[in-house]
Nucleic acid binder design. Structure first.
Lengths: 186, 186
DNA sequence: AAGATAAAACTAATATCATTAGTTTTATCT
DNA sequence: AGATAAAACTAATGATATTAGTTTTATCTT
């Protein structure tokens, strides 16, 4: 064991994730982390170089968890079923982890190889579930971009409470995915 | 004229909009505004109550401009043409005014009646262009939500530079809108 | 033309951040 | 029992938003 027991890096990241999802990314501050960990904020610098590193690590964690859930959701499924499962899983992650989800959609810093890699894996997963449509080169890219767009757009507006009408939100989501898939077939 | 000439509220809002679009929302600070207006930051409080009011006013300006451009784009057009024109105008506003666009998609504070009103007008416009599809009640809501989602999702990912493949982005956008419209017809 | 007015600017101060430097504390190892 | 190392700490700096109080100055009144 180390000369003196105290918090470890993972404690910081874990609490940061909790704050991000419960109170919003803007509440993830050195001051708030220190309060929750019952230490003074300068002590955090014994474990992490500052807020930029914290957000990088939090983004990586978010992408890993997001990927794992999406992957899990599609296991053993094919075609339309796989697409709907991935879509549903996508929306649920955003709802359950609004703070982490926001981090997953920010443009990754190209220097952060690990982050770029995880972001690429998510796009590869989306590509996989779209592959049964046998789209020609450019159309496949169009379809991937379109699918990513509607997933994120719906998740985002939903998160912000932008769907106010008294109509079931999940049904609207299924409607959207179905409409897009029908449109793809032609 | 007033007892002593200086800046006026509109100067602050105008410069705030410039900074928002050129440097990002996070650069819209009292400190930066004061620098650009060649005054000290406390002097700004002679004209505005603080950052919250500034962002409220900036959001209203953004929504007004956004609505005006969307409306203008659809004038005299019908059906598919109107939808494509509105879509194209949507993406262009986001590209030309990334800072203002971000403000238009935040959930409006329900207490800000004027902001809510403008946001509603934009949704009404989207509803209008979708009306030729003669969708039944719930399906109309689904379609509106879906269309808003794909517009925002595409605009957002585009803004963040998330479409990296060497395939024309505007073609992808047209592909997405067309696919959705085809899907709506069934 | 001189003084009053009002609204603009200002300085000074407080509070909250992130961060750095330097000091103290303390669990473990020798 | 003392050395070590890494954790905690305090103190300080610089950026931010904001408030309070003072000064400046263009216009209006007499």
């Amino acid at each position: 064991m180390s000369p003196r027991a105290g918090i470890v890096l993972d404690d910081i990241i874990r609490v940061a994730a909790e704050i991000a999802d419960a109170n919003g990314l803007q509440e993830v501050t050195m001051a708030n982390l220190a309060k929750r960990l019952l230490i003074k904020s300068p002590s955090l610098y014994n474990h992490i170089s500052g807020l930029p590193e914290l957000f990088n690590r939090l983004t990586l964690l978010a992408l890993e968890n997001f990927y794992a859930e999406l992957k899990q959701a599609t296991l053993g499924l094919e075609k339309k079923e796989a697409i709907h499962a991935l879509s549903q899983s996508y929306i649920e992650f955003a709802r359950n982890h609004p703070g982490l989800y926001e981090l997953t959609i920010e443009a990754p810093n190209p220097k952060q190889k690990d982050i770029v890699h995880m972001a690429d894996k998510i796009i590869a997963l989306i590509t996989e579930v779209l592959s049964p449509f046998h789209l020609a080169e450019e159309n496949l890219i169009h379809a991937i971009r379109g699918f990513r767009s509607l997933l994120h757009g719906f998740a985002f507006i939903d998160l912000k409470g932008g769907f106010g009408m008294p109509v079931d939100i999940d049904q609207s989501f299924t409607f959207l995915v179905d409409a897009f898939l029908r449109g793809l077939k032609e």
